[in-house]
Design a protein around this nucleic acid. Sequence first.
DNA 1: GGTGTATACTTGAGCTAGCAACAATCTAGC
DNA 2: GCTAGATTGTTGCTAGCTCAAGTATACACC
Lengths: 148, 148
Amino acid sequence: MSPQVLSAWLGLLRSHAELTRAMNAQLVAEHGITLNDYDVMVNLENAPGGALRRVDLADRVLLTASGITRLLEGLERAGWVCKRACDSDGRVTYAVLTDAGYEKLKEASRTHHEDIGRMFTDHFSEQELDELSELLGRLVSDPRCMPG
Amino acid sequence: MSPQVLSAWLGLLRSHAELTRAMNAQLVAEHGITLNDYDVMVNLENAPGGALRRVDLADRVLLTASGITRLLEGLERAGWVCKRACDSDGRVTYAVLTDAGYEKLKEASRTHHEDIGRMFTDHFSEQELDELSELLGRLVSDPRCMPG
DNA sequence: GGTGTATACTTGAGCTAGCAACAATCTAGC
DNA sequence: GCTAGATTGTTGCTAGCTCAAGTATACACC
């Protein structure tokens, strides 16, 4: 294995570990939600009607189906998400963002956006950000899930 | 938050999740060890005498001290790592790679190196790999831990 | 229309890792 | 020397997630 590959691989492992840990800690400390909670809610917000099937949610936030079930349990208990049955398919139950959920998300986004922004714009120009996204985008199997 | 930042952040999350999951699954399936197990053993191999303090190990593989204690329990049970006391400091116990550990690591490396290599060289030129490492390297707090 | 397979989701068991609290040891300052 | 604080490591507790198995529904094909 070439040193270039090793360096890229270690860079990915390190940067991910440091950033997610920091972001997660910040969200938990300031808002009492995890990074995955936040991601789920953002995905719901961006979905038409604030609702998504659980499979689709699982695909977007990269959890297994059971992981989603359990994560949503928490959000439902907190009242930020609720269930809704599907008329045309008895198997699916939508996860729907509640009004309280929208509020919570809005509140969390304020500081979270700042923190993420700082973390990246401190180190990169806009052009470099594009470069980085493009390179990382090649590593994901399904480019549809990436914006831009 | 700018769309560029969002895109880079999502790219980091996605690519990391996909790659580590694939790498881990491959290691578990073919060799019965996790990615963290592997990382710990590689770090031990590269250390002088195949030994490291647990704090240093924790720092390198990005686990907390307790995570390291438990991970090493497993490796010790398997006979790949053993403990050694430190003469000059009664608090520290070194983790030492055993002969069996060297063997195991050598065996696992054969396929693992190939898999990592393929994962990156399929998508990047050598120059792009350098670019990627450089960009990711800016995100880690302590650049000393990065090779090159 | 009945059967077989695929899909959506849940549940139980088990694992990994983090946090907080703790014990043991080292070091600096007096 | 002694004390205060820092450092190293372990342990109890818990959260979060995966895997495997199970249930329920949908759909395709004869």
